[in-house]
């Protein structure tokens, strides 16, 4: 069974690309075949986050315009077996492809991969419409801030209007210390406001910045954020990582918050 998952947020800078990189790597580590597609035409970024920027020859537009075969544009990640990147074009704009062409592309990718992860651009215009065209499922990334949540709600509405009903939430950059002080909305608060299913919550973690600096997602093996991403991957793959897990994570948060207070 192959699944096309769009990772979207509406607002920029909440961690979409980082999430795609980490989930892509995590799913491949679980033994799945995964392709990550950068659909942010003109603002290529997934390649640098993955550390694959020097290996780009062809891109998504070349495939769509039949300048090359699909296989030629796919970049294999040499660190994890089964992980591929389809980079986007840097010199074109969002109107260079149509939703129909994107749908055709994802259909083609479904023949080869277990998971097709689409890194969606910020905004709700053409780029967003292209990215969601072929998707069966959506992961909406937000942070516990009013601006990101407001836009996430709009995005959820637009996804539903486009007949994508399998939508789950990722809450990124949670700060346990601020939550403990009552200065940041909790996971429960955000889920309550957006009223969609949660698939994972990621703490704000400097290891993510370090891993991104090195172009190597999931390389700081023991960091909390990476554990959270691995849990999300297991849930995507259909494993029942029970609700208890959130309480465990809360335990982590509480302990971490306690440590901050102690200092």
């Amino acid at each position: 069974m192959s699944e096309v998952i769009v990772i979207t947020s509406g607002k920029g800078g909440v961690g979409k690309t980082t999430t795609v990189a980490n989930i892509g790597t995590g799913l491949a580590e679980l033994g799945k075949s995964v392709v990550m597609v950068d659909t942010d035409i003109g603002l290529r970024n997934l390649d640098v986050v993955m550390g694959l920027e020097n290996r780009i020859v062809y891109n998504l537009i070349d495939v769509v315009e039949s300048n090359c075969r699909l296989k030629q544009a796919l970049i294999a990640d040499r660190r994890v077996e089964g992980l591929f990147l389809l980079p986007t074009a840097q010199t074109k704009d969002k109107s260079a492809v149509t939703p129909e062409q994107m749908k055709k592309l994802t259909d083609q990718l479904q023949e080869q991969f277990d998971y097709i992860l689409l890194d969606c651009p910020a905004g709700i215009e053409q780029g967003f419409k292209n990215a969601i065209a072929g998707a069966d499922r959506a992961l909406v990334v937000t942070t516990p801030e009013v601006s990101a949540i407001r836009v996430a709600d709009r995005i959820i509405g637009l996804l539903e209007a486009s007949d994508i009903h399998n939508i789950q939430l990722i809450i990124n950059r949670l700060r346990p210390d601020m939550i403990a002080r009552g200065d940041m909305m909790t996971v429960e608060d955000v889920v309550d406001i957006l009223s969609i299913d949660l698939i994972g919550a990621i703490p704000d973690d400097e290891q993510i910045v370090i891993a991104t600096n090195q172009g190597a997602p999931l390389s700081g093996k023991d960091s909390l954020a990476e554990q959270a991403y691995r849990n999300i991957c297991r849930r995507i793959a259909g494993e029942e990582v029970p609700l208890l897990d959130m309480t465990v994570k809360k335990g982590f948060f509480a302990r971490l918050a306690g440590r901050f207070k102690g200092k």
Binding site: G182, T186, D189
Partner: peptide
């Protein structure tokens, strides 16, 4: 009232 309550 904490700031997160205003946000909510």
């Amino acid at each position: 009232k904490h700031s997160k309550d205003f946000a909510k």
